[in-house]
Design a protein around this nucleic acid. Structure first.
Lengths: 339, 339
DNA sequence: TACTTTTACTATACCGGTTTAGTAAATCGG
DNA sequence: CCGATTTACTAAACCGGTATAGTAAAAGTA
């Protein structure tokens, strides 16, 4: 026998498909004890597994949501995805994660794929490049929540970090530890997160009467970060402190330091925007700006679920504060440190 | 208007559903140029997106495969998943990744969920506990490939590392660098991978005439690893070298070292079974046993695809060699090192 | 006893595609 | 010019569930 269907179970139990369906949906009120038992036995014996496709087709919902992350290699993305999965798990909703790889084309493809699969809603870390598509989905009333990045000129449910504040605090922390030559390195300024981090950097300098200098603001493709750092450190007055704009940039900074035999904490101070799982285990321990990924994922899920359930949602942009976790890498320079 | 269906497109283009379906499946042979254009225009204008559920229901395939990883926190799992996704992407097959969290119940739930969603096949990092379920799937001829771990007494397509060999080589590398007191720490011996790594360890000692001592073989829950290490290092003759059985154990060893002010490379030598993305960036750089995750993912995908396409598959258990990447952490002890 | 209500079901339409068999009109061969 | 073939479609069954309307038998009620 091929694939077991509900008809097979019905036949075996001597009832109609309808009754089996009622049973599966736990509506036992209108069937006798022995009928229920017979269906139960038939299902057990045949190892029957219902076909969700058929059910979803009829019910017009799949109890599945999609997550489109911009780049799965970021720790933050993984943490948020995990949190979203945990949330929806509790509500018996499945989650599909896709990785757009920072590519707008891929993002579009995945959005279309997931919608074709009829997922009930989407949480997107947007590349920002598919404006018309985002807008159309919103107009259709399709449940959607943006995560991590804001889409310019689009009013939409979104969950973001207060990048400006957090960066400013970190730069000022550098200053309090005697640093004046402070640099920031991010990936290209194509998304709000990076722009805001640079903004926070500039604000900190301005507020503290320090001149803003272009060479101290690196924003380059991840592959070119090391080259830019080389130029930066070749200056007459190289920086004494660097803020790495995310975890991937951080690894580049470490690699650069290694290649040029520069020591973190001795030759320059370092902090990272993002959680680094081993930050506390290296020497010197690394100062990080931790985003509340778990809460952000939870809140985004909540906003999405409300939309799916056709509830009104109140707030349109939720900003979460980050936590600056100060460790040795960002303090005054000394001779005691190696990464 | 609610959701656009094929019927809407057909009406707008003045043709039947059948013709629209032909169009979507690129069977243009039997329709006129202008008909094709009209359908094209109608689709464009209505922003029609086909419903994959309906299609899959009829076609009895979803062009989707599932991956069930034992623990998504392992770098190896991520790398393999990525590789599988890449492979299937090329074949226009979607991938859904689920995390069983090392929990057999969760594993079962996910297997059933994915099969209910009618995925065309599964790649599983098995917990090993759902033997009957694995067996039934195989008997049904359901496409399945096991990854990373062997299931005892089950002959099934699987892709694994040569754990015994790789571990033996590493332990012997320790010996060549003068180490005699060598320990190994793994998670509990519930799965083949860990058993084999311990086996390789024992074999290396035996072949080199070194006595095997129980306290030098830690296998404990990740939370208890540090405590076990404490006991180990409290011995009269503590180890001078440790092999961490995977990346998570490695982090525990580092944390233990940090708490007890022990320095890697100075107080004990260290190697890890698994790739560590930052291994080369810390001091001392860490010796790793790299599994060919990309190739393993590729091969597993290939085996799965062949089964899906009803092709015969030749080999039933594919073992991949690992690469020992020797860095400073595993050499003779010296004073020049800090992590 | 006759009528209403409840119980325990069943028959059937439907979801949105695909696919197979069928058909009217145009073209072709002899 | 007529029958055969080709072209360009359409009608309808089907996939495996759900949901709604319907029904026969049993129980309750006046």
């Amino acid at each position: 026998m091929g694939k077991i269907t509900m008809a097979d179970v019905a036949k075996k139990a001597g009832v109609s498909k309808s009754t089996v369906s009622q049973f599966l949906n736990k509506r036992y009120e209108y069937m006798r004890e022995d009928t229920r038992k017979r269906i139960e036995a038939a299902i057990e014996e045949l190892h029957y597994q219902p076909n969700y496709l058929a059910r979803s087709l009829k019910q017009k919902r799949t109890s599945t949501v999609g997550i489109i992350v911009a780049n799965i290699m970021h720790r933050f993305s993984t943490e948020v995805s995990r949190s979203i999965e945990d949330f929806f798990n509790k509500h018996d909703i499945h989650t599909i994660v896709c990785n757009a790889d920072n590519d707008p084309e891929k993002e579009k493809k995945y959005i279309e794929m997931l919608r074709a699969k009829q997922v009930d809603g989407l949480i997107i870390f947007p590349t920002g490049e598919n404006f018309d598509l985002y807008k159309r989905m919103m107009k259709e009333g399709y449940p959607i929540v943006f995560m991590d990045r804001k889409v310019p000129d689009l009013i939409a449910p979104s969950v973001v970090s207060n990048n400006i504040e957090a960066t400013k605090t970190t730069i000022e922390h550098f200053m309090e530890n005697g640093h004046k030559q402070i640099a920031i390195a991010t990936e290209p300024l194509t998304i709000s997160t990076r722009v805001e981090r640079q903004e926070g950097y500039k604000k900190a300098l301005q507020d503290n009467g320090i001149e803003i200098r272009q060479p101290f603001m690196i924003s380059a493709n991840i592959k070119k970060i090391k080259k830019e750092l080389e130029e930066l450190f070749a200056l007459d007055d190289p920086p004494s402190a660097i803020l790495a704009g995310n975890d991937l940039v951080f690894l580049e900074v470490l690699e650069f330091a290694k290649e040029h035999k520069l020591k973190v904490g001795k030759d320059f101070a370092l902090a990272v925007f993002d959680n680094i799982p081993f930050a506390h285990l290296v020497h010197p321990p690394v100062t990080t700006i931790a985003q509340p990924s778990y809460h952000m994922g939870e809140k985004a899920s909540e906003l999405l679920l409300k939309q799916i359930n056709k509830e009104e949602i109140e707030n349109h942009e939720l900003t979460f504060p980050c936590e600056l976790i100060i460790r040795d890498s960002s303090k005054e320079l000394n001779n005691n440190t190696v990464i």
